[in-house]
Design a protein around this nucleic acid. Structure first.
Length: 283
DNA sequence: TCTCAGGCACTAT
DNA sequence: ATAGTGCCTGAG
């Protein structure tokens, strides 16, 4: 493992602010121009300076992990081309530049999305940070404090009351259950990484508090299963209006439509539609 | 005061 | 199978 402290990465086709702020990822803290957070067990500071990404890390993080974390290892132009299947998508894709899917760590991603159930984007972020600060570990990078979400084994040993005081509400037992399953190896992220998507999805759904939507988010945002098409209320509304003449359609049908219509990179289509719907509305 | 927010589980049909 | 309903919590 390379011991990199500082460096930079060419990133002409990345909009860090949009990618960090679009609601796909939680727990990063923006201070001035720099985002501070964890990649695995390493605290990192990242900022964009024109066409490049400048980073500072604690020791022990491979440079290639930063590249993959930022989603820079895919051909964005080709992906966007593939999902631009109609005039609406042309408008959607043209509305924002450099939005990329980040490759999150599985555990923080699972936690974040369990918390996301029936919750607002800003609150999800607040709660993730609260848990990290109260129950996690403190790191320092570039003189800045960064708190890491507790490891599954640690969280599993926490009291439900402590978790509830972080604002998790009825999701507290879900988080504890997930932590126990991960630390016991019932949920094995390395195994999931090697599974067919459908099988991985079924396994993730055995976690209490994880249904179709959250399982799909974890597969898309942590395991790069770009063919998944998570259906939340925004996507449901958008797809109903744009592709089903505003008629009521069940989430599972929306999901299957999205996957078939957009194909290999349906997840990218989902993220762009989501961003567009939230930023511009759907008229 | 009441509704709603990037769902889910539980229950009754 | 599938449609209702309640849920922690805080912001508008």
């Amino acid at each position: 493992m390379t011991d990199i402290r500082t460096g930079h990465i060419p990133a002409a086709d990345l909009n860090l602010e949009t990618s960090m702020g679009c609601g796909q990822i939680f727990g990063w803290d923006r201070r001035g121009k720099t985002y501070f957070g964890m990649i695995g067990s390493t605290a990192v500071g990242i900022r964009q300076e024109g066409d490049r990404i400048v980073f500072v890390t604690e020791s022990g993080l491979d440079r290639s992990r930063i590249v993959s974390y930022l989603g820079l290892d895919v051909d964005l132009g080709q992906i966007l081309k593939s999902i631009t299947r109609d005039s609406f998508m042309k408008r959607v894709v043209g509305s924002v530049r450099g939005l990329r899917l980040l490759k999150q760590e599985p555990w923080p991603c699972l936690c974040s999305y369990i918390i996301s159930a029936n919750n607002r984007v800003e609150r999800i972020d607040t709660i993730v940070k609260q848990i990290s600060r109260e129950l996690g570990t403190r790191h320092v990078v570039d003189g800045e404090e960064v708190y890491c979400l507790p490891e599954p084994g640690v969280l599993a040993g926490c009291a439900e009351s402590g978790l509830r005081s972080c604002g998790t509400g009825f999701r507290a037992p879900y988080l504890l259950g997930a932590a126990a399953m991960v630390s016991d190896g019932v949920i094995d992220f390395d195994a999931i990484a090697g599974m067919p998507t459908g099988e991985a999805r079924d396994l993730l759904k055995t976690v209490h508090g994880v249904g179709d939507k959250i399982a799909d988010c974890v597969l898309l945002f942590a395991f790069s299963r770009y063919e998944t098409f998570p259906v939340d209320v925004w996507i449901k509304r958008a797809v109903q209006i744009k592709y089903f003449d505003s008629g009521e359609v069940k989430p599972d049908e929306i999901r299957r439509f999205g996957q078939e219509y957009f194909g290999e990179y349906a997840g990218y289509a989902q993220e762009y539609i989501y961003h567009y719907a939230r930023e511009h509305g759907l008229e």
